[in-house]
Amino acid sequence: GPPPGSAAWRADTVLGVRLPDPVGAAPAEVAAFFAGLTPAQRDALAVRHPLVTGNLDGVPVEVRYRANALALEEERRREQAAAEDGTLSAAGRAQALARAQRYAALAGRQILAFDPRGRGQVVEVFGELSPGSRPAVVVPGSDVDLTEYDRDGDPYAGPAGMARALRAATGGQVPVIAWAGYTTPVGVGMDAATADLAVAGGARLGRFLDGLAARTGAATVFCHSYGSVVCGRADLGPRQAAGLVVFGSPGMETARAADLRVPVWAAERNDADWIGRVPHVSVLGLGHGADPTGTGFGARVVSSAGSHGHSGYFAPGTASLANFAALALGDTAGVRCADRDPGCHDAR
C-alpha cells in the first residue's frame, strides 16, 4: 500500500501547492517536484512527513536519508515507551524492546526506505549513489524483514551482509543497495510456492529502479532465491537494469532468459543448496518455472566454486562472489564460467 502517513501528506498545503501523489506520481514527476524546492522546503517535508518522504521514489537521496533517520528515531522512542509500559504483558514489552533495539541498530546508517508496518521493510545504501555510479542492488528471498535484515549470526545470508561483501569484493568501487523493500514469504509454504508476493514486489522493485536510474544509471540486480521470482516479475528494461544475476533460484516465472529483455547471469547451484530439490515447474499457479541454470533457459552460467548451502554464495573466497564483483564492475570478460557453460562470456 501507500507509505504510512499518506493521508496527511495529501492534505498538506503548507507549500501552497499540491504534493505529488504517493501512489500515482511517477518517480520522474516526484524528482521534478523536489528539484523545484528550496533546501529548506525539502527539509520541511522530511520533518513533517518522514515516512512518506523517506519512502517516495524520486525524492533526492540525501532527503530520504534525513527523513528515514527521523522516522527511525520516532519509532524507536515509541517502542521504547511501550517497552516501559507496565500495563502491557511481559511478552508485549519484550517485543517492543526488541523492535526499539532494532531501530537503534539502524541509526546513523544510509537508510533509503523504512516502513515499520507489519514485519517491516528497509532499504540501505553502502557507498555513494553519485551520478553515473551504476550501483548494484541485492534483492533477497524468503524470511527477510526488519528483524532478519542483518543476520549477525550468519553474516553473508542476509541482504545487508550480502551488500557489504559485494562492495568489499569490488574494492569499494561500486555502491551497493540492500533492497528488503517488499513483503517476503515466510518459510516454504504457499506464499513461497506462488507468485502473488513476487507480483507485488516486482512492481515495487521496478518503481524503485526507475527512481534510482534517474540519478545513477542502470543497476546490476542480484536476485537471491524467491528474490529471483521478484526480479522475473518486475518487467525491467535496459534503462533500469544493466543485467540480472540470479542464484539459488526456484525459477523466474518465464521459460527463457530472452523474455526478460536484459542480460541474465545465473550462478551454478552448489550441491548443498536445498533449492535443487524444488521442482522447476509451474502447474496451476504453483512453482516458478524453468531452472535459470538449465541449458534450455539461455542464461549465462557462472561458477560458484567454494560456495556452500542456499545462502553461501556471497562468502569471501568463493568463485560466485568473485564473479558477482566482476559483473557489478562491468567486467564480463573477467567472469569465471561454469564448466558446463564455457562460453558464458559470449553475447546472447
Rank of each mutant, 00 (worst) to 15 (best):
G1N: 11
P2R: 14
P3A: 08
R10P: 03
T13C: 08
V14Q: 12
L15R: 05
L15T: 08
V52M: 03
N55T: 13
L56Y: 02
V59A: 04
P60G: 01
R66T: 06
L70V: 02
E74D: 14
A81C: 09
E84K: 13
T87V: 12
T87A: 11
S89L: 07
A94Q: 12
A96V: 07
Q121W: 02
D145M: 03
T147I: 14
D150N: 10
G158P: 05
L166E: 00
A178L: 08
A180K: 11
A180Q: 10
A195I: 12
G201Y: 10
G202S: 09
G206P: 05
G206Q: 06
L209D: 03
D210R: 11
C223V: 09
S225M: 05
S228Y: 04
C231V: 08
R233E: 14
L236S: 00
G237M: 10
P238I: 10
A241K: 01
G243K: 07
L244E: 03
G248Y: 11
G248F: 05
S249V: 02
R261V: 07
V262T: 04
R269P: 00
A272H: 11
W274Q: 15
V278K: 09
L284P: 01
T293M: 01
G294M: 13
A299T: 06
R300I: 06
S303F: 02
G306L: 04
H308P: 04
S311D: 15
G312P: 06
P316E: 11
N323I: 05
A326T: 06
L329N: 13
A333W: 09
D339T: 15
G343I: 01
